[in-house]
Amino acid sequence: MSRPLGVILAGGLATRMGGGDKGLLRVGDKSLLEHVIARLSPQVDRLALNANGDADRFAEYELPVLPDPLPGYGGPLVGVLAGLDWAAGQGARSIVTVAADTPFFPLDLVKRLEEATKGMTHPLALAATPRGQGERTKSMSRTGLIRHPTFGLWPVALRQDLRVALEGGLHKVVLWTDRHDGREAVFDTPDDPFFNVNTPDDLVRARKLAEAQS
């Protein structure tokens, strides 16, 4: 197995959209989740979906559905842990995560993340963009870049370390990645490639972008 496995994070609460599964919202002739699958599947060996609740609602996508392995809502890091546990059972060395509500992420995401981690014993990296792109919901690094914590390359070898950190109350992605000297893969484009659908207005914008690209 030469490439990472892919894990789509869909375990959020979607409070600004009124709850429910954002990934099932329609953008053009596809759901958000279909857009994400189409972009990620060519970049990885196989895919799984991190989501909680009744897995049957995702049956049409024919993907393994991975519930959070820890109780309560622990944020995206718990979804990462779910993916790492699954990957360990598949004999994989790493996973790449993406968000289920981000339909236009880069087609070379995995390649760029892997390039950023060359030489690392345990490859760990987050996607990042220059300041000014996506600042409303993103995390700034020490280098002044905006990190996108749901888009990362994660080593299976650190899954038990992550589990212990989560059980100890750590939930902020960048605190854990900084602890392990995680790197950044920088994507410098005119528009934010990690634009995600958080609100009804975002959904309108996503539909316009999809129409312009079709």
Rank of each mutant, 00 (worst) to 15 (best):
H122T: 11
V65E: 09
F104I: 05
V44K: 07
A99E: 15
A100R: 00
A100K: 00
P67Y: 01
V96K: 12
V27I: 12
I37V: 13
Y73L: 05
L32H: 07
L24N: 06
N50D: 06
R46K: 08
V36Y: 09
V110Y: 03
P123N: 14
G132K: 03
A92S: 12
A38I: 00
A82C: 03
V36G: 10
A59M: 00
D56M: 06
H122D: 14
G132R: 05
K111G: 08
P42Q: 01
R26K: 13
R112I: 02
W86D: 12
D45T: 15
G91M: 02
A48D: 02
S139E: 11
V36S: 11
D56H: 09
P130A: 08
L33T: 13
P76W: 00
T97S: 10
N52Y: 06
V80K: 09
R112M: 00
I37H: 04
K111E: 15
T117N: 08
R93S: 14
Q43F: 13
L81I: 11
R112A: 03
D56K: 11
V78E: 08
I37G: 00
R136Y: 12
L84F: 09
E34H: 03
F104T: 04
G75S: 09
G28R: 03
V78F: 06
E34W: 01
R39Y: 10
G83A: 07
I37T: 04
K118N: 05
L109M: 10
L33Y: 04
A125K: 07
G74F: 06
A99K: 02
P123Y: 07
R26M: 12
G72R: 00
A51C: 14
T102N: 03
I95N: 11
G28N: 01
G119H: 12
A99P: 01
W86L: 04
G72N: 04
G134T: 05
A92C: 01
V80G: 10
P103A: 10
T117K: 08
R131I: 09
A38N: 02
G53I: 12
D68Y: 10
R39F: 07
P106V: 12
E62K: 15
V65A: 14
L24H: 11
V44E: 05
R57K: 15
L113N: 08
P42T: 00
W86H: 14
G119A: 14
P64L: 13
A82H: 08
H35P: 03
T137C: 13
L107H: 11
V96S: 02
A127E: 06
L81W: 10
E114F: 03
P106N: 13
K30D: 05
A82M: 05
